[in-house]
Simulated scan of single mutants.
Amino acid sequence: MSVSIVPFRPDHAAAWAALNEAWLAEGGFAVEGKDRKVIDDPQGAILDLGGQIFMAERDGIAIGCCALMAMDDGGYEVAKMTVSPAARGLGI
């Protein structure tokens, strides 16, 4: 098993959305407007504002994600961090 942490690319968009929507549903949370904005537009809501998104890939398949959202004070907030249930326990 080879896992790589890579910067978000446009071809990650579907996996980004699926991972985050699944995490919210698993936790019994509704997808709120603020979630929808970040899930539907990671480029505009995170990357264009100075943040970063990292995807965990195993054999080329996205199995996890984590965003660092730029804050007004110059720091970052960890957001949208999840790993698919099948990949949990692998140390990602």
Rank of each mutant, 00 (worst) to 15 (best):
N20I: 02
N20M: 06
S4D: 13
I61C: 12
L68A: 10
E26H: 13
H12C: 13
D40F: 12
M1L: 15
P85K: 10
A30K: 09
L90C: 08
E77V: 02
G91Y: 10
Q52L: 13
A86V: 15
W23H: 14
A67K: 04
L68P: 09
D48R: 07
G50V: 12
G64F: 03
G75R: 01
E77S: 04
P7H: 07
A14G: 13
R9K: 14
F29H: 14
E21M: 05
P7C: 08
P7Q: 03
A14C: 01
L49C: 14
G64N: 07
I5V: 14
E26N: 03
D35H: 15
T82L: 00
P42T: 11
F8E: 00
E26Y: 09
V6I: 10
I92T: 08
S4V: 08
G60D: 05
K34V: 15
L19E: 04
V6L: 04
Q43S: 11
I63H: 01
D11A: 09
V83R: 00
R58S: 14
M71R: 14
A14P: 13
G89Q: 08
L49H: 07
A56I: 12
K37F: 09
A62M: 11
Q52C: 07
S4M: 02
A18P: 09
G28W: 07
A56E: 08
G33T: 01
E32R: 06
G64I: 06
A67T: 05
G50I: 14
S4N: 05
G51M: 13
S84W: 03
W16N: 06
N20E: 05
P42F: 04
A15S: 13
R88K: 12
I46Y: 01
R36F: 06
F54P: 07
A14K: 04
M55P: 06
L68T: 09
R9L: 02
A22N: 08
S4C: 03
A79W: 00
I92Y: 03
G91R: 00
L47G: 05
I5R: 01
A86L: 15
G27E: 06
V38N: 00
A67C: 08
V38S: 05
P85I: 11
Q43P: 10
D11F: 09
L49A: 15
G50K: 02
R36A: 14
R88A: 11
I46L: 06
M55E: 03
P42Y: 03
Y76T: 05
L47R: 04
T82W: 00
L90H: 10
N20Y: 01
P7V: 05
G60W: 08
D48G: 06
G50M: 06
